[in-house]
Design a protein around this nucleic acid. Structure first.
Lengths: 188, 188
DNA sequence: GGCTTAATTTGCCATTTGGCAAAAAATGAA
DNA sequence: TTCATTTTTTGCCAAATGGCAAATTAAGCC
């Protein structure tokens, strides 16, 4: 919980009373590895802060392959924004890659916080656009890179992730097959 | 200008007085094809609404290749958000793909609008997160697709763009070489 | 229209990546 | 420890894409 507060404070000010309100509205849950935080077909109605563990966002393409869009690690918010923002059924899954501990805010909790904490929307908006920008900035260059470069850049940018996620998921995140990734590793 | 107002109104309410303020703060410019709206090294200090034309965001990789990150067409906002939000020098270029007409808001104008229009921040935040989400949603699946699929999906999602941008730019957007794209076209 | 320049297509071959299945290694449970 | 299961590596070959340069086509200009 302290990590969450610290995180929020880097995006804007909150006094002690406001921090207490945030604490009140939060609910903590745990996910076992491979459990889902949200699933395709449902409408997302909660936001989570990851206090421990790694999640991944994934979906299935028309060939039935499971494709990992990205990983989200501790000390970040996770939410199916397409679904949450626009109240539409989700098309993707958010799954625990490792055992996770999450701090949950329901849509109602978020609305209450927005109504009672003057700064709340501003903070959340900063967090949202920062997170989205990071995703764009991370994914976008990968298109122009070959598989080896993608992997090396991944290692560079998220070194702590590499040895915490199975090769198969990493491969699908990098947009290559798992055997290709295995070969790439060997050649390094 | 009417397009801009209409666009804004789809994200929130503005009364006539507020609309007039927006009009006052706006400044219209034109860009000739291949002119830059913003350049690497500079700090972005303005936001633009494209009333006509197409822009692209691009950068140069370490091999000197010019890489198109994405295209932005009329009736969308364009801004170098990495630079504008965090006041850091940009690493990319925003260039007119065709002759363009832009409605410009300086950082100061945006601040004034934020201070005088109660709804302004909410509207801008909705626009921002929608635009960023669209980028993520558009780029992210491409990683898992082969070149032909990428091209077909591009045609599907942005059919009006295909014949307005040169093949070389489109190829770099798709992350393939221009000759590959040419061959792909032939095979369809 | 004719000319110059830029954009696109094509051929040829090298390199990269995929697909599939078997082997090897790692993991976990009894 | 042993066995079963999962994950990763490897071999083999096919398919996709890249690199480069020449040929063709299109576009722009006088």
């Amino acid at each position: 919980m302290e990590n969450l507060i610290d995180y929020l404070l880097t995006f804007g000010q909150l006094n002690q009373q406001q921090i207490d309100i945030v604490r009140q509205k939060a609910r903590t849950i745990t996910l076992k590895k491979e459990e889902y935080f949200s699933e395709a077909g449902n409408i997302a109605r909660q936001v989570a802060f990851i206090s421990d563990g790694i999640l991944r966002v994934c979906y299935y393409n028309n060939k039935g392959d499971e494709i990992t869009r990205y990983f989200i690690e501790e000390n970040n918010f996770v939410v199916d924004l397409n679904s949450y923002n626009y109240n539409i059924p989700s098309t993707e899954y958010i799954q625990a890659v490792s055992d996770c501990e999450l701090i949950i805010f329901s849509r109602e909790a978020m609305a209450d916080l927005s109504a009672t904490i003057i700064n709340w929307d501003a903070i959340i908006n900063k967090i949202t656009s920062k997170a989205l920008l990071e995703k764009v900035n991370r994914i976008s260059p990968m298109l122009a890179e070959d598989a080896t470069t993608r992997y090396l850049h991944f290692l560079e940018k998220l070194p702590h992730l590499a040895n915490r996620i199975p090769l198969s998921l990493l491969a699908s995140y990098l947009g290559i097959t798992q055997s290709s990734l295995s070969r790439i590793r060997k050649n390094i």
